[in-house]
Amino acid sequence: MNSILQYIPLNYYVALAAILFAIGVMGVLFRRNAIIIFMCIELMLNAVNMLLTAFSTFHGDESGQVMVFFIMAVAAAEVAVGLAILVMIYNNIRTVDIDELNKLKG
């Protein structure tokens, strides 16, 4: 089975990953809801995953995909911890608006 990379240049994937990554960044900047921000970060990670997979296929080297696997595991762990923190904060201040979190400054 031929991979898509035989029909399109690798550059396209790189660019797509960059675009998705940038959209993720934009989301982080754009939103105040912590959950959405998490999701945008997940989006960034997925952009990276896709890039790694593309490279892996391009080079015919599996380590890239192993790395994607690790990243997924890490992402899961992060989400677990992140949501735990979030819930804890929500329990304390009843909001997930990150702009409310500005007691520490200066």
Binding site: L5, G60, D61, Q65
Partner: peptide, 17 residues
């Protein structure tokens, strides 16, 4: 993030994944 064309031709292995 340009410059992927400078890489050597891509592998034909299809069993990587």
């Amino acid at each position: 993030t340009k410059g992927a064309e400078k890489l050597a031709a891509h592998s034909t292995r299809s069993d990587v994944g």
